[in-house]
Design a protein around this nucleic acid. Sequence first.
DNA 1: TGATAAGATATGTCTAGTTGTATAGGAAAA
DNA 2: TTTTCCTATACAACTAGACATATCTTATCA
Lengths: 243, 243
Amino acid sequence: MSDNPSSNRRRTPIWLAIANALRNDISEGRYAPGDKLPTESRLSDRFGVNRHTVRQALSHLTEEGLVRSRRGAGSFVAATPTDYPIGKRVRFHQNLRAAGRRPDRKVLLIEQHAASKGEAAALNIQTGEMLCYYSGLSYADGQPVALFETLFPLTRLARIEAALAECDGITEALRRVGVEDYTRASTRLTAVLADATQALHLQIREGDPLLRSTALNVDPAGVPVEYGRTWFAGDRVTLTIED
Amino acid sequence: MSDNPSSNRRRTPIWLAIANALRNDISEGRYAPGDKLPTESRLSDRFGVNRHTVRQALSHLTEEGLVRSRRGAGSFVAATPTDYPIGKRVRFHQNLRAAGRRPDRKVLLIEQHAASKGEAAALNIQTGEMLCYYSGLSYADGQPVALFETLFPLTRLARIEAALAECDGITEALRRVGVEDYTRASTRLTAVLADATQALHLQIREGDPLLRSTALNVDPAGVPVEYGRTWFAGDRVTLTIED
DNA sequence: TGATAAGATATGTCTAGTTGTATAGGAAAA
DNA sequence: TTTTCCTATACAACTAGACATATCTTATCA
């Protein structure tokens, strides 16, 4: 604050002062979540320092989780971590909307294949029965939060493939094929490291930590309707376990 | 030195990750040989990167020989370097189309001359009988693959000259002059180096390897109808010998 | 039915701008 | 002297947009 960069009695390093100034700008709403910050070049002009000094400030804010930068695109104010409750009912879109955030999703692939031994066991069906494989990305406020791949038994849900392609979410698609309600039967969590493909999709770095959830959803009669795995970007989501 | 302990992870470049993902899709049969890949635009959406980054991935796969792209048309999974079966029936256009590629040809020269001693012997006719000399280039997906020069006996096929000029291929031209079918009587193969003229036509470098085929085709009665030599660009074609 | 023209798509190329990384060096503090 | 902080430069990797050019599709007309 009262530090003068040209003073030789400098208590705080220049980069820290810059980081504080930027953090202040953000907290005061001068830069809102999702906004693009000025380029490093412009910031180094504004603060009258070398670009590397600005970079150190930005890298500090990045580690704090306040800023996220994309090579070639710029630096952006990060959205706050999404709190993601896991309990009897897990509804991605509803959860996010309830938290005042804008949910979205992107379809990567929808296709059919025959159930392997493991998949059949998980869904409690016969090996070789047809499944619908559905993978995609979940976004919160335009920021990728999770990568999922999930399986639906086609013998139970014949028209799920078309429904998934047309609807905005799994809940909606399941309702269209006659599953009015479903609940979470089991959830298993582990931590893994992102491989190159996952990192690409989630816009994080290879080797960054992911939270992997393996879950089974069943209809009111207890029949499995969906079995899937989800990889959450570790720094963008907080999972909360409910009773 | 170690300003950021977590930054020592070696990161796969984005384009490489995309190339790997696509190669994986191809090897798993998601895109079969000859299939059209999604457009660069769609791929850049799917991977959440700029189109240029996708282009670098595709160009990598192209150099590997796994993908071929045609301006205005799209990118396609390569059906191996033109696999060219040599057996009883050798039909350039049909072979290429069966491999999912786009055949084309360019006429270099069509003229008449009297048979030399060697030519007469090959076609089993009298020295001095008139021949039709036909030379040109064969293309696959717009890329020159082979240079050929071939001879037709005019006493047997009077109007072949006009037919060659008008038709799209030898099979078609022969049919028009009454040869409904023909088979390969003999094929001899050697490897040679491209001279300056050949290199120019095939868009390769002088001294690059060529596969030279000397072949005789006969009609169902065993009468020679075509005797020719073909120079294949060695790196653009694989000859397969059939029974 | 077939040919042609026009429009929509898709790849190829070019220019410019932004962040990421590596290297080297100077000035002040420990 | 050594370490830390900052400057300076150069290049690599990725984004962004615009435009050129080839191809495919569709509509239209004869």
